[in-house]
Amino acid sequence: MAALMKKTEAPLVLTPGDDFERLFLAEYRKVVGIAQRILGDRQRSEDVAQDVFAALHRRHAAGRPSSAWLYAAAAHTALNAARATRRRQRREASDARATSPLRTGSGLAADPHSVVEQKERRDAVRAALARLPPKAAAVLALRYGGLRYAEVAGALGVAVGQVGTLLARAEAAFRKEMGR
């Protein structure tokens, strides 16, 4: 896991070659975790993570990206992906009821009802998240993706003292949406 960012730590500067690989290996899991809080789907979350690192690789020659940039990009890219999915689903014919067992990496789930319940819970979380303002959704994804307050602050571009306030408000709004 990456070392915690201190408030005064200079932005990470990439140099070609090994630095990108080190950053990838250090931060990939966290980036996937942030995306997965929003998308709820591991495969799509890894797709988002791959897109984010590809974008970082393209940008490094032009700027001074940082881990904070990485985290913010993960949240925003995942939110965009979630919105695009909802738009596409509204356009296309809906599929059959989601009652079939879900195929996982270890094969079919042994308990279809449990799988359906889990999916419904995850879908409810995603839907509630989608109804929040983007900043509130992002702060939830970043915090529950494993970032400390200083990292969340860096990703959102706010003072660390504001993170608690943003988080408390986002959680209150989220709980209200879940109760709808």
Binding site: Y28, R29, V32, G33, Q36, R37, R42, E46, G105, R121, V125, A128, L140, Y144, L167, A168, E171, A172, F174, R175, M178
Partner: peptide, 19 residues
């Protein structure tokens, strides 16, 4: 505030499957 945080923590908890 703690109750809201607990509810969010439960909602966003994920299986520990590793990357």
């Amino acid at each position: 505030i703690a109750a809201n945080a607990h509810a969010a923590g439960v909602a966003f908890a994920l299986d520990a499957a590793d990357v």
